Amino acid sequence: MPRRPVAEPSPPGLGFPSRPAAGRPGRGGRAARGQRLALFDLDDTLVDRRAALAATLMRFADRHHLTAEQHGAVLARLGERAAISDFQAIRTLYGLAAPAEELWTAYLADMAALSVCPAEVLDGLDELSSRGWRLGIATNGPADIQHAKLEATGIGRRIHGVGASGPVGFRKPDPRLFAAAAVSCGATVEDGGWMVGNDPVKDIHGGRLSGLHTLWIGAPSRWPAHLQAPDQYRSTALLAVRLLLDGTS
């Protein structure tokens, strides 16, 4: 029988190593002994991709005079991921005059402008970094759109590295994506750490395969019964960050 996610735990039981001296490590350098690693999923964990996508494609539909049915079809097509090839197909399907490169560039700009990371989460990332954590992003998606969102939201200024499936060549839950994300932070998964995300398979199962502790963003009652449960859970990214902070207070 798969074990269920644990109830809201007391932070001292997490088994964190002792707290290092405060001060943010240099970006890209090798993690010092005792520093901790936390990898975060980006879409629908640190930023609300669904809301940003809905607003972006409403702009797209208005800009190109799509019908409600066409708008719905585009939203369904781009629901999980988007690439310039999608806009090549959309351009052909709906007879749009703008070249695919222009459509893609506008999509990137709108997604970045409409993506938001709550200020409290950004503050929490700052605090984690000041306590010696190495912070990284492990995300499925092309580098251009993911980096655009990271910079627009302010997350990019608070992390040490990014592992994006486009340039890495592997997608979560492949352990090689998590390993690449850790290396980009100057760390290794062999040294341990945490993976925080909202997808049971891509984030939590993949993180566990990589040897990381796992922290799921979701309610225990919604955890798929056929999967091994995460080490911890919280309902929001803010509470997840606070859990990590409480473990190093």
Rank of each mutant, 00 (worst) to 15 (best):
G211W: 00
R3Y: 11
H64E: 14
W223N: 02
P25V: 02
Q146P: 06
Q35P: 04
D44S: 07
F178C: 09
L103F: 05
D231Y: 01
A68T: 10
Q228K: 13
L209K: 15
V74W: 04
W104Y: 08
R30T: 15
R234E: 09
R208W: 11
R158T: 02
G29D: 15
A61H: 06
L177I: 12
D203W: 03
E190S: 13
L39H: 03
M195V: 07
N140H: 10
M111S: 09
Y107I: 00
G247H: 06
K149N: 07
T139G: 02
D110P: 02
E69D: 14
V168P: 02
S165C: 12
I217T: 08
A180Y: 05
R158P: 01
W194A: 06
L93Y: 07
E127L: 13
G136P: 06
L37N: 04
D199V: 02
R234V: 03
F178M: 09
L244N: 09
L39S: 01
L42F: 08
V116C: 05
E80W: 08
R77W: 13
A100L: 03
R131F: 02
E80N: 13
P2F: 08
D231W: 00
P220Y: 00
I90Y: 00
W194F: 15
K149L: 08
R27I: 14
D44H: 05
R134T: 06
G206Y: 05
F60R: 00
M1T: 14
A164M: 07
S115F: 03
N140V: 09
A21T: 13
G156H: 03
L14M: 15
G28D: 13
Y94Q: 12
V196H: 09
L103S: 03
P224R: 01
L108R: 10
E190R: 14
V116F: 05
L128D: 04
I159P: 00
D110L: 00
M1I: 14
A31R: 04
F40E: 02
D123H: 12
P25T: 08
C185G: 12
S130N: 15
P142H: 06
D41L: 00
E151N: 11
Y94H: 15
R63Q: 13
A148E: 10
T92N: 12
P224K: 07
T67W: 08
L215I: 00
A89I: 10
G136N: 10
A164N: 05
